[in-house]
């Protein structure tokens, strides 16, 4: 019997919210704390070959559910929160070729969008974010300042950042600061 009930509190519930920086700008940045649904880390078994066709079957079928992390590693992300049983129920699909680790407690998603979004993120990372090099659906694990994050492009002017929960508010504050010259609308309400 647990002495304390564990209550899920969204990581960015108390983060800064509102409008910041330049008041008049047509390149405003929108920051959004995205729903904390499920984050599944999928790791390929040694010598399991190319699994790129298999991994999407773990996801919920949405456009950017699967985000490549490194060789043989993916994050599968969706808005629905899944119980341990529901996650375990997905393992037969992988047929022993890969394992699933629930990271829903450990990583959160931040949406960032706007005409100047590439310029804002380029202040923190060395990855070339130009649409020609970083097309919609592409992901890259990198540093934003000193914070490790998975950057994924979900649209020409839309990115999502998957960041460790404990670093989410620091990254949020840094993103606001990085976007001040363009003006930032930060939305933590969900």
């Amino acid at each position: 019997m647990a002495d304390f009930a564990l209550l899920h509190r969204p990581a960015l519930a108390t983060a800064k919210s509102g409008s910041f920086g330049a008041a008049f700008s047509n390149e405003r940045i929108t920051l959004t704390a995205l729903p904390e649904g499920h984050v599944l880390h999928v790791l390929a078994a040694r010598g399991s070959g190319d699994l790129t066709g298999l991994i999407p079957r773990i996801g919920d079928g949405s456009a950017h559910a699967v985000r490549a992390y490194g060789p043989g590693q993916w994050f599968v992300i969706g808005d629905a929160s899944l119980s341990a049983a529901e996650i375990f129920g997905k393992t037969p699909v992988l047929d022993g070729k890969a394992s699933i680790s629930d990271q829903g407690h450990g990583r959160v998603l931040i949406g960032i969008s706007g005409a100047a979004v590439e310029a804002v993120l380029a202040k923190g990372t060395a990855v070339d974010l130009a649409l020609s090099n970083f097309p919609v659906g592409h992901s890259a694990m990198t540093l934003i300042g000193h914070i490790s994050a998975l950057i994924s492009r979900t649209g020409p002017e839309n990115f999502e950042l998957l960041v460790l929960r404990g670093f989410a508010e620091s990254l949020w504050d840094e993103l606001i600061e990085m976007g001040l010259e363009f003006g930032v609308d930060a939305k933590t309400a969900r």
Binding site: Y69, G70, M141, T142, L143
Partner: peptide, 8 residues
């Protein structure tokens, strides 16, 4: 070690 990237 690519610690802050692919971790390879």
């Amino acid at each position: 070690h690519h610690t802050s990237g692919c971790r390879r």
